[in-house]
Design a protein around this nucleic acid. Structure first.
Lengths: 95, 95
DNA sequence: TTATATGATAACATATCAGTTATCACAATT
DNA sequence: AATTGTGATAACTGATATGTTATCATATAA
């Protein structure tokens, strides 16, 4: 019998649909995009300006911010660097 | 006049050759690969076993560990998750 | 020696990302 | 109303990551 899913949270919580790795990745991606957009706007930068600073073109930044792409790490770094962020590898915390 | 560069460290320290973002990325990538290989071996996993666990194929893992590729973040997550690691977004620290 | 497991790599197909160029709807400004 | 700047998106190209399959040299075990 097919499960009913009404919310995104329910979908994400469903172990049969979403693996731990997927959950990790989506959490990260949402957090990343949030910080990215927040930091860019906090600095008063447009996507076009950030494109200039980062070397990543505006359409690519738009695709990134709307989660229309799964970026390569070098692209992430280029975009994050002028915003004052970087990536770290950390142990998975059991919360 | 052309600069002489004898070591990798010298090359990396050369502001004219390597941008801050590139430096960040290379540092991250080296650290990442280090932890990745260390964690995999600590768990006694072969690349083939990790491939099974992560869903990323053995040749892709080999290319990753030998830095022959610039992975996409979803690939990183898939490989890191069974090793107990994840990625975080952190402010760039001025050290 | 033979067999087995290893990481690395080759060759090719497929998928997808980023660049490029252009455009759109919308908002704010003049 | 016309202009300007915005984020989003379309279409296409070229680059590159991953999948697939196979193989290699090496190390280890039988």
């Amino acid at each position: 019998m097919k499960k009913e899913v009404n919310t995104f949270a329910e979908y994400m919580a469903d172990k049969d649909r979403v693996s731990d790795a997927e959950r990790e990745q989506i959490n990260f991606q949402v957090e990343l995009i949030g910080k990215l957009i927040e930091a860019r706007e906090e600095k008063g930068l447009s996507q076009r300006e950030l494109a200039k600073l980062s070397g990543v073109k505006q359409p690519a930044i738009a695709r990134l911010e709307t989660m229309k792409s799964t970026p390569q790490i070098d692209t992430l770094f280029k975009v994050l660097a002028p915003l004052g962020y970087t990536l770290s590898i950390t142990p998975i915390s059991k919360n």
